[in-house]
Amino acid sequence: MPQGAGVTAFAGTRLIARGAPLDVALAVKAALEGGESASVLVFDDRDARPVEFDLRGRPADVAARLAADAAWQSQTEESAQAQPDEPDAETPRGRGRPKLGVVAREVTLLPRHWDWLAEQPGGASVVLRRLVESARHASESKDRVRASREAVHRFMTAMAGNLPGYEEALRALYAGERTRFEAWSVDWPEDVRNYVRELARDAFA
């Protein structure tokens, strides 16, 4: 898990710890060693994905493993995202011109698309980049709604599947009806209800 990503731990339906992964891991370890009998689940606050900690050994052992895991994941993500910088195929890089991080890849279009691109100022690459950026901005709101709903669904499946109103709340979630969603979840255990509503902050935009 990347450094800075917050997590939340529940024992049954009670929130027992929240914060940085190491802090929560040590709190969970202390709770289990103190006799906590309820099932403990930990969730990533970004997307409600389950998080597992290796709690064996001393607190220092737990901290060392978490640091190693975070470093490995960070390195893996950087390697996966790394792309060789190549000059724009239509704009050769002159002496002293800094690399811009552009990547040359094949694009397949119909002839009429190429004809249209050829008529645009700046060349095909400039136009395509501008179109991609425009599409990205246009979809940001929808992407936030989708990600929020997926996180809520994931958490509800793990924590609220047996609670009254679960199916109705889920239908209200995907229908974009915040009032109905909150009405069906109002009687859920307080910590579960509060956390699921936090996850749903962008689900009804």
Rank of each mutant, 00 (worst) to 15 (best):
A63D: 00
R149K: 11
G122H: 06
F204L: 01
R149N: 04
R193V: 08
R105E: 14
T13C: 05
Q75P: 00
G176E: 08
A38M: 05
W116Y: 12
P121A: 10
A25D: 05
E86C: 06
E106P: 05
R14H: 13
R136P: 00
L22H: 01
A27T: 03
A138S: 12
I16R: 08
A60R: 08
V7Y: 03
V126L: 13
G122V: 09
E119L: 14
L128D: 08
S39M: 13
V152Q: 01
E150F: 07
V196A: 10
A63V: 00
K99Y: 06
E52N: 13
E177K: 14
A64S: 05
T13L: 05
E90K: 11
A124K: 14
P59E: 06
F155R: 05
P87S: 11
T13I: 06
L128A: 11
A67H: 04
V51F: 06
L15T: 13
G96D: 03
A135R: 15
A38E: 14
A25I: 10
S37H: 12
P84D: 07
L109T: 07
D23E: 12
D45F: 02
A64F: 01
A138F: 08
L55K: 02
R171M: 05
A203S: 09
A158S: 15
P2L: 15
A138D: 12
R144D: 11
R97S: 09
R65I: 02
R112I: 11
L173N: 03
E106K: 13
A11E: 08
E182H: 12
A63K: 02
R58F: 06
A82S: 10
E198S: 08
W184S: 08
L109W: 03
D47W: 07
D54I: 10
G122S: 06
G6M: 07
G12L: 06
D45R: 05
E182D: 13
P98S: 09
L110H: 12
V102G: 08
L41F: 08
E190V: 13
Q83N: 07
R144F: 03
R18Y: 03
A169T: 04
A89N: 11
W116R: 14
A27D: 04
R154P: 00
L55W: 05
L163R: 09
A135M: 12
V51S: 04
D44W: 01
V62I: 05
Q3H: 07
A30C: 01
A160N: 10
A31P: 00
G165H: 07
W188C: 07
D115I: 09
V103D: 09
F53R: 08
Q73Y: 07
Y195F: 10
F181S: 06
A71C: 06
L55G: 02
E77Q: 14
E106T: 14
L100K: 15
